[in-house]
């Protein structure tokens, strides 16, 4: 039953993806992107990743969509018709896909407990979490305690990106002001 629900949701995800790739109206594409993120969150719940699902629903479907719509408001809604034929990209993407599908034959089947990923360090946290930290949600204890440095690095990345965005946009404001001043002077003279 679990794997059937999983299969149906994943198929829906694939259909939405086809829509995202084919549509040329960017507003529709961004809204489809929001639907995609909510579907992804549902898939993640079926895959038992509840914390990730919450983050994906709020960040992927919420913040990303709002950011994209804001930028769309400042630019153009309709995408231009491509001037090149898409043969080379199709070939590159298709070739990569074929090689990757060939690679899946070497991977363990879905949902088994005795695969390498499920028998080593990940599962050790399940036994250690309560005695070490007293936190029942193991994802939280690994994120904030065992791998706290990862989270620190993540915060650094987000901080750097924030500074980058501020610098980019502030410089834009000053440049636009400069250009307007130049135009005014030109029109005067």
């Amino acid at each position: 039953m679990e794997s059937l629900i999983n299969m149906v949701l994943l198929s829906l995800l694939a259909v939405v993806t086809i829509g995202v790739v084919r549509l040329r109206n960017l507003f529709a594409v961004i809204i489809l992107g929001g639907i995609y993120s909510f579907l992804m969150a549902s898939v993640l719940i079926v895959l038992d990743a509840v914390d990730v699902a919450m983050t994906e629903a709020s960040v992927g479907a919420g913040i990303s969509t709002v950011l994209m719509l804001t930028v769309l408001y400042m630019t153009r809604v309709e995408e231009a018709k491509p001037v090149h034929t898409p043969m080379l990209p199709i070939f590159v993407a298709g070739g990569t896909g074929a090689v990757l599908v060939y690679g899946t034959w070497g991977l363990p089947a879905f949902g088994l407990a005795d695969t390498p990923i499920n028998t080593h360090v990940g599962m050790a946290y399940m036994d250690l979490s309560i005695p070490d930290t007293g936190i029942p949600n193991v994802v939280t204890s690994v994120l904030a305690s065992y791998r706290g440095f990862d989270t620190f690095g993540e915060t650094t990345v987000v901080f750097t990106a924030g500074i980058g965005v501020l610098l980019l946009l502030r410089r834009g404001v000053s440049l636009a002001r400069l250009r307007r001043k130049q135009q005014e002077e030109e029109s005067k003279s």
């Binding site: 990743a49 990730v52 992927g60 950011l67 499920n118 994802v139």
Partner: peptide
Amino acid sequence: SNPLPHVLILTAIVVGVATLAL
């Protein structure tokens, strides 16, 4: 289920939105 991939991807999502904003 295995908690370790969940932790790694939580980090990836947040870094992803940061790079998207940039």
